[in-house]
Design a binder for these strands. Structure first.
Length: 839
RNA sequence: GCGGGCGUGGCGGAAUGGUAGACGCCGGGGACUUAAAAUCCCCUGAUCCUCGAUCGUGUGGGUUCGAGUCCCACCGCCCGCACCA
């Protein structure tokens, strides 16, 4: 072989075409092989692939290629989460159509992904904005409506009066619309909801079985679902009314010294004809909802003339309207127990209300004063009549039992999770397939009329929903009575689109969303890989949607993703200078900067720039490296190798020029080694055989555990050893093994090498078999310790007896010098490991 | 405030309670070359140094023959949630 350099510019494209032509990665549902479904979170088509995508998809790609080599029929698809606001923003800013803009972005990004050589089944590609896709989604939505899992209700939303649209909470910044900057209003609108709360218990329960999900994500979902158990009961009010409250601490009921209701509680509203009350309610509304504001906000209350009668003592408790009580949670009213709730403590201190101790560490301390804060911890109930001496847990039960038998309250489970509002006053989304008729009410669009497609002729020159003001689109006849009716102009939250796409990848008949039997062959997804930012919303919605479809009999699987992996971000240091006039940093991109080991300077003026922290690549900090440029320069395999090296996949990966250059060098180094392959070499090299087989086994288990950085390190080790080895049959076998080990990670290089030493495509080859006999060394290094400190090492045969090892150790001069004649009290021998002498 | 994670060389990081720093990057020295690139070899935690020794995994304790790893307390950084009764 004469090639001394591997040329990715030629090889990458050659093998990408070879895989496409052979249909290498086309998944066959009818294959008798065991199935493996590998999925990465599909991208939003923003226009460019970024390093985060490359890292995400490289990990999935290694798994997919490895699984294929292990004999699995692999489904590894790709598509586009194509609806959403950026397309409408582009339409407004550039005067382009959202559809055209999105399609163009998809074409660009697909070409980019193909240049990285991912083992994707492109025959299953789709975009959520394809009418074929969202039409099936509309059908599923209608099915869920029929099953009672979709409903409409009036709810309060964030309304941007300038853009004339509903905003998600995340789009409200300091009370203003993120685009328009206008003061956001609270509006009551009729909205579509999905009944996710029906599944709250099941979604929570299911988390316990997701053993291959990160603990962190499970906890985040658990907190989000927010199950709490307590007592709901009613106070009799002095004005003759009743006040239902909810508490998780019924055990502290004897410590209650006031009641408080939310500003938008009906009782507070009823008092609002008093101008003082009205003013207080207004003041509460003005209070910000931002985390920082909430934390520092003072507890404020308005004392009404009403009192509430304590259910056990009969004491009258003052009723306050308070700014810290939320109408959305529980009953919008609380009993205040200042001794054992920090908020109530602050409130009681300000308004000089009694602070009673009803829980103490032991009964003798029932009179202890509080030390400036509430005591929310466990203990024994005191100062509480019949509850005295009980544990907190027992007292909770006792109070609930008495309330239930007395008929004035009952045990209740309350969830933090709310039903999922899916209405968006937007154009670029799935039209909600319903028609509003004066006489028939809300009528689903008949299935044979789906999809309800988006009109093409829309304008974005003025704010608001283009569907709403389209001249003809919304005017339709009622499917039931035929009278003139109005089409729903809201579209679905794009999270709906991503809640079932993995099912459509598994099976895509034309006439139905998916085929249940086909889906059952592939689901659940074996490895789902994506960013931690989707820990709650997307992953919770997808789990819910899967359950909902199972409940209405569409599928049998309950959990969509058997294992979840959340990968770290790709980061880069930042380069900046402080603008002397405005005092703010001005950032420079890596291309504008000359980075040396000492520091960094701007290429333009040679003057230094400040090297900032290593943070996530972002346009605003200009610390972005474009994958295309890197691939053009170093080839796809070097980039893939970099993505897998060094950092554990769940942690952040700092990008560096030196790092990618090192990877490119290693690609060439491997190429030289592969080029030196000699099929005819003779002779055995037992040590190398051992190393080869140990490496094959270790790389396999590392990949299976997604420990790509460790697999990479082992490949480096074996490479080093093979390079130093003399020619032999063992060395040739090691080189062949290395091609296989490299194949999932550096597929183009591996194919190029395999073309010269093997048959067919390495992508189709089997993972090399391991000889168990070669996995164990016949010689081991034994550590010789004195008092646990290393004094010497010695080589011994594997499995040597304890006596042999002890004798070997005692013969060590270094050990004897350390012992220095002291009496030996104990000898610890760990076979094949160490000998420790205790004196 | 609540919940979670992480602290190991100049850097990214290895290490079933058993030789800390595998592997990579950076750096230093050398070989080859007219020269450079490429490649190859050696060194590279700190201190004292001749063998070798001492110290060393955020800090302080503890368990153990032996602790980066287990336990307790603390410090720092990062992430998520947050007036959820």
């Amino acid at each position: 072989m004469t090639d001394t350099r591997f040329d990715p510019a030629v090889a990458d494209e050659r093998w990408q075409r070879a895989w496409t032509d052979a249909g290498t990665f086309t998944a066959d549902s009818d294959s008798p092989k065991p199935k493996s479904y590998i999925l990465e979170m599909f991208p939003y088509p923003s226009g460019r692939i970024h390093m985060g995508h490359v890292r995400n998809y490289t990990m999935g790609d290694v798994l997919a290629r490895y699984q294929k080599m292990r004999g699995f029929e692999v489904l590894h698809p790709m598509g586009w989460d194509a609806f959403g606001m950026p397309a409408e923003n582009a339409a407004m800013e550039k005067g382009v159509h959202p559809g055209g803009w999105t399609r163009q972005n998809i074409a660009q990004m697909k070409a980019q992904l193909q240049r990285i050589g991912f083992a994707l089944d492109w025959t299953r590609e789709f975009a959520t904005c394809d009418p074929e896709y969202y039409g099936h989604e509309q059908a599923l939505f209608a099915d869920l409506y029929e099953a009672g899992l979709v409903y409409r209700k009036e709810s309060t939303v964030n309304w941007d009066p300038v853009d004339m649209t509903v905003l998600a909470n995340e789009q409200v910044i300091d009370g203003k619309g993120w685009r328009s900057g206008a003061e956001v209003e609270k509006r009551k609108l009729n909205q579509w909801f999905l009944k996710i709360t029906d599944f709250a218990d099941d979604l929570l329960e299911g988390l316990g079985k997701l053993e291959d999900w990160p603990e962190k994500v499970r906890l985040m979902q658990e907190n989000w679902i927010g199950k709490s158990q307590g007592l709901e009961f009613s106070f009799d009010l002095s004005d003759g009314g009743k006040l239902p409250v909810y508490t998780t601490r019924p055990d502290t009921i004897f410590g209650a010294s006031f009641c408080a209701i939310a500003a938008d509680h009906p009782i507070a509203q009823g008092l609002a004809n008093d101008p003082e009350v009205a003013a207080f309610i207004e003041a509460c509304k003005r209070g910000g909802t931002k985390a920082a504001e909430v934390e520092t906000a003072e507890k404020l209350g308005y004392r009404t003339a009403i009192t509430a009668r304590h259910p056990f003592t009969g004491e009258p408790l003052p009723l306050f309207i308070a700014n810290f009580v939320l109408m959305e949670y529980g009953t919008g009213a609380v009993m205040g127990v200042p001794g054992h709730d920090q908020r109530d403590f602050e409130f009681a201190t300000k308004y000089e209300l009694p602070i009673l101790r009803v829980v103490a560490t032991d009964p003798a301390r029932a009179g202890d004063p509080f030390k400036g804060e509430a005591e929310a911890g466990d203990g024994v109930i005191v100062n509480s009549d019949f509850l005295n001496g009980m544990s907190v847990e027992a007292a909770k039960q006792e109070v609930i039992t008495r309330a239930e038998s007395g008929g004035w309250g009952e045990g209740r489970t309350v969830w933090r999770l709310r039903d999922w509002g899916v209405s968006r006053q937007r154009y670029w989304g799935t039209p909600i397939p319903f028609i509003h008729c004066e006489t028939c009410g809300v009528v689903p669009v008949p299935k044979d009329q789906l999809p309800v497609t988006l009109p093409e002729d829309v304008s974005f020159d003025i704010p608001g929903n283009p569907l709403e003001r389209h001249p003809t689109w919304k005017h339709v006849d009622c499917p039931k009575c035929g009278a003139a009716a109005r089409r729903e102009t809201d579209t679905l939250d794009t999270f709906v689109d991503s809640s079932w796409y993995f099912l459509r990848f598994a099976s895509q008949p034309a006439d139905r969303p998916f085929d249940p039997e086909e889906v059952a062959k592939w689901m659940p997804v074996q490895h789902y890989i994506g960013g931690i930012e989707h820990a709650i919303l997307h992953l919770l919605y997808a789990r819910f949607w899967t359950r909902a479809l199972a409940q209405i009999g569409k599928i049998t699987v309950q959990e969509p993703f058997a294992a979840l992996f959340t990968q770290g971000m790709v980061t880069h240091e930042t380069y900046s200078r402080t603008d002397p006039a405005r005092g703010v940093p001005v950032f420079f991109s890596p291309e504008e900067v000359n980075r040396t080991s000492e520091g960094a300077s701007l290429l333009a003026d040679k003057a230094p720039v400040e090297v900032g922290r290593v943070i996530k690549m972002s346009k605003s900090k200009k610390n972005v490296v474009d994958p295309d440029a890197i691939i053009a320069r170093h080839g796809a395999d070097a980039v893939r190798w970099f993505m897998l090296s060094d950092s554990p996949p769940e942690r952040d990966l700092p990008w560096s020029d030196a790092g990618i250059e090192g990877c490119a060098r290693f690609v060439q180094r491997l190429w030289r080694l592969f080029s030196a392959y000699d099929a005819a070499a003779q002779g055995e090299d037992k040590a190398l055989d051992r190393k080869t087989h140990q490496t094959i086994a270790a790389v396999a288990s590392d990949i299976e555990a997604l420990g790509f950085n460790k697999a990479v390190a082992r490949i480096y080790e074996l490479t080093g050893m093979v390079e130093k080895a003399a020619p032999s049959a063992s060395r040739s076998a090691a080189i062949r093994a290395l091609v296989h080990l490299a194949a999932p990670m550096m597929p183009h290089l591996a194919e190029e090498a395999w073309a010269k030493m093997g048959e067919g495509l390495i992508a189709d080859a089997a993972w090399p078999a391991v000889d168990p006999a070669l996995l164990v060394d016949d010689e081991v290094t034994i550590a010789i310790q004195h008092m646990g400190k290393l004094r010497d090492t010695v080589t011994a045969p594997k499995g040597a007896s304890k006596d042999t090892l002890e004798a070997l150790a005692m013969a060590s001069a270094n050990l004897q010098r350390s012992i220095d004649g002291a009496a030996i009290r104990k000898v610890i021998v760990v076979p094949d490991r160490l000998v420790n002498i205790v004196t």
